[in-house]
Design a protein around this nucleic acid. Sequence first.
DNA 1: ATAATATGACTGACTAGTCAGTCATATTCA
DNA 2: TGAATATGACTGACTAGTCAGTCATATTAT
Lengths: 237, 237
Amino acid sequence: MKLAAKSKTRSPPARRRVASRAARASETKVVSAPLSRPNRAERAAERRQAIVDAAMEEFIARGFAATRLDDIAKRAGVAKGTIYLHFKDKESMFEELIRTAIVPLVGRLQAPPPAGATVRELVEGFALTFIREVVNTRRGDIVRLIVAEGPRFPSIADFYYREVVSKGLAGMRAVIELGIARGEIANANLARFPQILIAPALIAVIWQSLFAKHAPLDAIEMFRTHLDLIFGERRTT
Amino acid sequence: MKLAAKSKTRSPPARRRVASRAARASETKVVSAPLSRPNRAERAAERRQAIVDAAMEEFIARGFAATRLDDIAKRAGVAKGTIYLHFKDKESMFEELIRTAIVPLVGRLQAPPPAGATVRELVEGFALTFIREVVNTRRGDIVRLIVAEGPRFPSIADFYYREVVSKGLAGMRAVIELGIARGEIANANLARFPQILIAPALIAVIWQSLFAKHAPLDAIEMFRTHLDLIFGERRTT
DNA sequence: ATAATATGACTGACTAGTCAGTCATATTCA
DNA sequence: TGAATATGACTGACTAGTCAGTCATATTAT
């Protein structure tokens, strides 16, 4: 009983501009055509990205359960059904978003290995990157989201542990051991708990979300002070 | 679809169950006061507490939005309507829970001021209490819940900042300044960032919820290592 | 008795997920 | 070349629920 007859009026949904056939004839197979005239596949990818972006915003703002797919669709400028062309269901979408949001974050942090630097400079470099790229951006909210929803999405917590936490900590441990070997770090026990090195960064993430409006926190200065504890008073700057 | 309107006259629901109430009365009360026959006020308080406990479990397990009042009622052993005799609505209940769960926690931590102790012993005492009473208990999950839901419940975040964070940090700052004055703490900057002192404890809370099953974390040993950084290598124990 | 409490069936608002149908684009064929 | 045909991305009304909050009725306690 789909009273179909009435739907002739379908509001024409602002279809994106495209041009036609003359062009098609001249350039049949240009693969990576620049964004001037997106073809079907490119437009689809665009829309998927719009959905991903919109979903991220909504999930960050409301958490998993309270986020409405209608709102995601609206924000992305697509119909709700379109979401289901790209994602199996709400849960899959959430999991995939969190996963992909995390991956580039790791690469960024383990990327730059400057040669002639002290271990402290190395660590400080990591920290500055983290604070700049995570603490003061939307990515920080993603970290908070993982803390928030992790227990209800064990697969996310597991993935995050494998791909981010264990790798990140292993990297930190290596750096710490280097520092110990070079005599920059006095306390050899620190290598057993690389979490200590990270702790103030995580605190900063949480602080920004919850308490920044009550008392702004200078994450960089806090981290430097923390490094003073680990490496000794000497300050780089 | 919603063929509602017709049932003006609520169908008389064959009521049964009469004995159960008496049965319940006989099996109540073993816990605290040795009153064999609790009076009205006491029973009401009991039920309220049952609701509070049940709600806590459910909120911790599912978060605010995904928790069903039917489940709370079931777990508490009351009817759903009973909840509304004690709480205005779901949101009020959640807020009150978080609030009341936190208050005793602060008192506990600023309570015992032993006289002839070093500052390090003082801090270590705090930390052990925190780890015992929070990290390894349901209270830790409440802390996580605050981090998770805080942004969507500003009044909770505000309350928590006023009553817990600012007071806790002020207390820590005082202790740090004492340590500096006594020469136990070398880095005077630490007083500017008492968060650093707390950081590993918060890490431990989060770790227990998310990653303990992958890699158990010895929170106490981690904290001692952290104290070594602050107070110098010598270990108390 | 009768006021205070407790109950749970019920309502209405809200939402995840579906699917028949549309139409811009792509492909085929004369 | 361009008309005919095929494709599949996209839409949004719709279904099948779910659940917070209400209230008429029932059950104590005093």
